[in-house]
Amino acid sequence: MSPSARDARLLRWLAFAAGLASAVLILIVLFLMQESWPVIARYGLVHFVSARGWHPTEGTFNLVPMLAASAATSALAIALATPLGVAAAIFSRFYAAGIVGRLLHWVIVLLAGIPSVVLGLWGLTVIVPLILKVAPPGTSLLAGSLILALMILPTIALTTEAALASLPSAYGIGAAALGLSREAIIINIAIPATKASIFAGVMLASARALGETMAVLMVSGNVVQLPKSLFDPVRTLTANIALEMAYATGDHRASLFVSGLALTAVVLALAAVARRSGGQVVHA
């Protein structure tokens, strides 16, 4: 076979693989739309935020408690993980010399590798009893947020670290030659120069937090209610789908697809924002 024919064949295969990958995404979104359509057509979108509670067998599908739970656990997790992740990245980049920095880097990478069900197990046996001592029942919004924070910490730390590493060394040397302290370099140059990437990392972490199911399901208590305090048990959108999918039928089943569709839309939007702000996608 001539080189140009080989090249053409390779091109066909690559185009097929690329097409397949994008087709799957489109098919999944179409499938979600199709499955959720019956209930949207019957009740209208407003129903999902205005109905009297979540009583799927009686035909009321208010998703607000689940939406609120997802938003609250993710927001709290982001609030906890962002300063920690950025601080860890700055420490490993600027302060931890040699072996300590490499060790810290690997610990963060390994943390990203822990399966979420294992984190959930750990949360259930360690975090939940601790919270129980403060305020029962232990399984709560707070427990879910803490576990989520642990899960997304590596995403934020690794994107920040990669962004800091991509800064030209000329900035650091130039700043040192001006007699600037390390602290001044970090605050005045490194962080402003990487804030778009840090923001992108936080957006990706938010997407991951919103989509996470198993660990939150295990530690958050799964009561459908608007949380009034950090210690209230809550049920996230994802947990709701996982818990009810097995037995849901008809409109109930379709309403779960509505939550799936909403979740997918938010996560894709966050990923798009992350991409626009110039961050690189680091899947932790």
């Binding site: 000329a170 040397i173 040192a176 030659a177 001006l178 007699g179 001044a184 140059i189 402003p192």
Partner: peptide, 28 residues
């Protein structure tokens, strides 16, 4: 290093505004 300044081969202004490039070292 304040007494002994340095200019490098490749220009290395910080990714800040022109004014901040000059003010920031002064403030520090």
């Amino acid at each position: 290093r304040q007494r002994v300044g340095m200019i490098f081969q490749k220009p290395n202004p910080f990714p800040l505004s022109i004014r901040r490039n000059l003010e920031m070292p002064l403030k520090e």
